[in-house]
């Protein structure tokens, strides 16, 4: 199946099996390895990317579904000013340990702040509930997101 979509601001046309997972297309065909596979069943969130600005599990998306969509991975997002704010805030708050869940968490953070630039702690917890982290116990990630929301006022 021929699919046309926008990937990190570039128009792409690919010929793929429509059942191929977006996750594999991103990792294998485009070498976008920030997108991780942690479970392959939509439970862990390590593969979260943005589709039309919203966080989605790329392991659950068949290729046929991305026609005409805007897909953003960390490789695209890390060039933005909003990313810089999230990065600084995560560094400051100690939000990162092993890092395998982190790109997915940054994507979910971006998705949250776009919709809700000043989220409450409860809203942060809810927004991250699809991103498992086994190292931090989450509290220092919440701190990082709160800090990003404060520091990045006006950016979202």
């Amino acid at each position: 199946m021929k699919i046309e979509f926008i990937l990190n601001d570039k128009k792409r046309v690919i010929q793929v099996d429509p059942a191929s997972r977006l996750l594999d297309i991103l990792r294998d065909d485009f070498e976008l390895t920030s997108v991780k596979e942690g479970c392959g069943e939509g439970e862990c969130g390590a593969c979260v990317v943005l589709m039309d600005g919203k966080a989605v599990n790329s392991c659950l998306i068949p290729a046929g579904l991305i026609e005409g969509r805007h897909i953003v991975t960390m490789e695209g997002f890390r060039k933005t000013e909003r990313y810089k704010v999230i990065e600084e805030s995560f560094l400051k708050a100690g939000s990162v340990q092993c890092g395998f869940c982190t790109p997915g968490i940054v994507m979910s953070t971006e998705s949250l702040l776009r919709e809700n630039p000043l989220p409450s702690e409860e809203e942060i917890k809810e927004a991250l509930s699809g991103n498992l982290c086994r190292c931090t116990g989450y509290n220092m990630i919440f701190e990082g997101i709160k800090l990003a929301a404060e520091r990045g006022k006006g950016l979202w």
């Binding site: 920030s34 960390m74 790109p103």
Partner: peptide, 10 residues
């Protein structure tokens, strides 16, 4: 943390 920037950016 020295390893954090590369982990955050993916």
């Amino acid at each position: 943390r020295v390893d954090a920037p590369a982990k955050i950016s993916g």
